[in-house]
Design a protein around this nucleic acid. Structure first.
Ligand SMILES: [Mn+2]
Ligand SMILES: [Mn+2]
Ligand SMILES: [Mn+2]
Ligand SMILES: [Mn+2]
Lengths: 220, 220
DNA sequence: AAAAAAATTTAGACTAACCTAAAAATATAT
DNA sequence: ATATATTTTTAGGTTAGTCTAAATTTTTTT
């Protein structure tokens, strides 16, 4: 039997919330992420468990089964490939693509995904720096640092974002911070942990802790 | 309020069945085309009428309203643009794209459609020779001939197909007939109306009436 | 113009995905 | 260790889209 849009969205969200350690996800967390009520989540969990896509014991939270993870990763692969298409080929901004990809990710043709992947040149990362699972379902999270873990004087490469909200991405655009930018922390203010950052060795700007907490970077 | 996948499919099918004269479409015809039962169609017609998308009087058949036609044409535009994308950019065969486009046509972003259209170079026709409505919703059916209306000795250009079934399209592939081929009827058999056709001035082959009836052509 | 056939609508039910309100289980605080 | 608070599940309903069977309307045939 095929999985519905709704089922796929649940699986994707369970995957995201359970993190790389595959920790149990709570009913309330799912209700929050799916913008539904806990009672609705419980209904869906019973269904997903019956289909063998999640491990579920009442009151104990859920984890994906192998089968469930396969579906989740396939949806993530499609989501991220479509985002690359929208940005690289259609010229959308990285702040505009999430919602559209949220729909495109449910189009169900393996052939389509593989051809799209080839057309895009087998990209490894999406426009937000998130890794794209390969055709076999392997998804390896690169272990980036968060900018808050970087010391004054260090130079790092901007590799991704934790917050995908358009408003945050637009803020980065206005600040001139993009994927691949070289960031050097020139100062950290003890009081509020705001920082001064030199971008690509040229202009320097202040960024708040809120921004630092959402920037994924890599030492060079 | 937004239209559902199902509503969009109904509107598209009503548009197709009512032809350019905008003739009334029967409940049974819709049941056939939507692969549902007449009772289900009646339910949906009441809903579409309430939304102002169709003219509907019980037992009288339906026609699209202006608003309904606008939606139908927008769906058709998306369907045909995505088909162009799948064939031109991803290398699918013209016999493989219909089903996928049937899903993609419901992705709801005007921005996406217009960018896709530009990316494809504002194509006028889809891979089956069907005209693509413009961004304003103008759809002009070119008045092609059916090959059965062509006389012996005439040379015509192959411009489109009436039957979109993969099996028919694959049959044309095997015969070497593609959009743009020059067809010259060299003989028509009185008995079964089968014909001999010279393709691009080179090889000649027999085609059945069934095939002739589904080929759209143009005098040069 | 009746009778018969065909098309269409109505009636009553089902499933998926949601909801609110109430009950039950688990976790936290005293 | 109780009592309280929080989380989760159950109970009972709703809407969209479908179904079958029965009733009604329209069309066709005699
Ligand atoms: Mn989605
Ligand atoms: Mn992304
Ligand atoms: Mn469709
Ligand atoms: Mn087509």
């Amino acid at each position: 039997m095929q999985n519905s849009f709704t089922e796929e969205n649940y699986l994707k969200i369970i995957h995201a919330l359970s993190g790389r350690e595959g920790v149990e996800v709570s009913t309330n967390a799912l209700a929050e992420s799916t913008a539904t009520r806990a009672a609705s989540v419980t209904d869906m969990l019973r269904k997903l468990a019956e289909k063998g896509l999640i491990h579920y014991k009442k009151y104990q939270g859920v984890r994906l089964t192998g089968a469930g993870e396969k579906v989740a990763i396939s949806v993530i692969r499609k989501h991220r490939l479509w985002e690359v298409f929208l940005v690289e080929k259609l010229g959308f901004g990285w702040d505009e693509v999430h919602e559209i990809a949220e729909e495109l990710e449910h189009i169900p043709s393996d052939e389509l995904v593989e051809r799209l992947d080839a057309f895009l040149g087998h990209p490894r990362f999406d426009p937000h720096g998130d890794p794209i699972p390969d055709a076999k379902g392997n998804l390896t999270d690169p272990d980036y640092l968060i900018l808050t873990d970087v010391n004054v004087g260090e130079k790092v490469l901007m590799m991704g974002v934790l917050d995908h909200a358009p408003s945050f991405l637009q803020h980065l655009d206005r600040s001139g911070i993009t994927l691949g930018s070289v960031l050097e922390i020139t100062e950290i203010n003890e009081y509020d942990k705001s920082a001064s950052v030199r971008i690509n060795g040229t202009n320097t700007l202040f960024i708040s802790l809120e921004v630092s907490k959402n920037l994924l970077v890599q030492r060079r």
